[in-house]
């Protein structure tokens, strides 16, 4: 066992995600206390990997890794951590990290903490804060054993602390990537043809509280009066009430409008990832303890339909 911290970085179309840099910065903070190395792990080609502030960067490349493939990437990361025995392996709680972190935990028998938003060391032991139950609770846990896997929420740490110019060591895959059952077929690009919500100055955003497809019309009317566009949280899109092009959040789009008026959105961490930088956030929700009220600038515990109708009369 070493005291190293491995950060499993992620990139797409040649660009690393912010959470990769965030985790490298955090890893450096942890290893300065532990005495190990903060190691950035880059899997797959097509991205310049000498851009981290890590103590070392390992870049694994192979033809089978040219596109994200959970099976191939999982095998590589498993072989790597088994060989190098880091004390901590950090993933992003992202579309990529979510496919591998818990899988690796079950494969290796090492503990995993998901939804992680902070890590610290107390008496030489790792303590992880995890934002569970839709952001309503913070669990503080101490993972046992000689290797711990965490999956970190994007936006938890500073990006800048992980940016640097450490040269990467290129290595071949530590495991033969033959006989894979998973094959990458093609990339899917965002559907065009709809309004681009990332380019709008004002958004009226609706959540589960809107209740039904018929009620979306009320939000449309309000948006029209305000010169705004209707966007939403994920459940509204999953229910088929709005197209996926309108979805704000982790699996949707990141927006930064001048106005983000939220009707019936509780503010789960996944949604906050997509809108917390909006200039003015106003939230209307019936649940006075909804996490969104910790993030919004203005809030009201009220019935969204009554408020929206009353606003329509005044506008």
């Amino acid at each position: 066992m070493s005291n190293d911290v491995f950060v499993i970085t992620e990139h797409m179309d040649g660009k690393f995600s912010d959470v990769s840099f965030e985790m490298v910065g955090k890893a450096k903070e942890l290893t300065s206390a532990w005495g190990g190395q903060a190691v950035a792990v880059v899997v797959g080609g097509g991205a310049a990997s000498n851009i981290f502030a890590s103590d070392a960067t390992i870049h694994v490349d192979d033809a089978a890794l040219s596109q994200f493939n959970p099976e191939a990437y999982g095998k590589v990361i498993e072989a790597l951590v088994k060989e190098k025995s880091p004390r901590l392996v950090m993933f992003g709680w992202t579309a990529m990290g979510m496919d591998i972190a818990a899988w690796l935990s079950a494969r290796t028998g090492k503990p995993c903490v998901a939804y992680a938003r902070d890590l610290c060391i107390e008496n030489n032991a790792l303590i992880v804060n995890s934002q569970v139950y839709g952001g309503k609770m913070i669990a503080e846990v101490a993972p046992e054993g000689d290797m711990v896997i965490v999956a970190c929420l994007a936006g938890s740490f500073a990006v800048e602390a992980g940016q640097g110019s450490t040269a990467a060591t290129q290595i071949a895959s530590p495991v033969a990537l033959v006989g894979l059952k998973t094959k990458f077929v093609e990339a899917i690009k965002p559907a065009g043809g709809d309004v681009d919500i990332t380019a709008q100055a004002k958004l009226v955003s609706i959540g589960r509280g809107i209740g039904s497809k018929d009620n979306v019309e009320l939000a449309e009317e309000l948006a029209q009066k305000l010169g705004a566009t209707v966007s939403s949280s994920r459940p509204v899109v999953d229910a088929g009430w709005l197209p996926r092009t309108r979805q704000v959040g982790k699996s949707g789009l990141k927006v930064k409008p001048k106005l983000y008026l939220m009707l019936g959105i509780s503010g789960a961490p996944e949604h906050l990832e997509g809108m917390k930088s909006a200039e003015l956030i106003i939230a209307v929700n019936t649940d006075k303890k909804a996490p969104i009220f910790n993030v919004a600038h203005y809030g009201a515990t009220a019935d969204l339909f009554e408020v929206a109708e009353a606003m329509l009369e005044l506008l």
Binding site: K110, P111, V113, I127, Q131, G135, K136, M137, I138, A139, E140, V141, A142, P143, E144, G145, I281, A283, K289, P291, I292, F293, N294, V295, A296, H297, Y298, G299, A300, T301
Partner: peptide
Amino acid sequence: GLSFKKMAPPVVTGHAEMI
């Protein structure tokens, strides 16, 4: 392999101005 130390609502650092 996780031992719970604490479970609590988030410590609120900022809060919306409530209307």
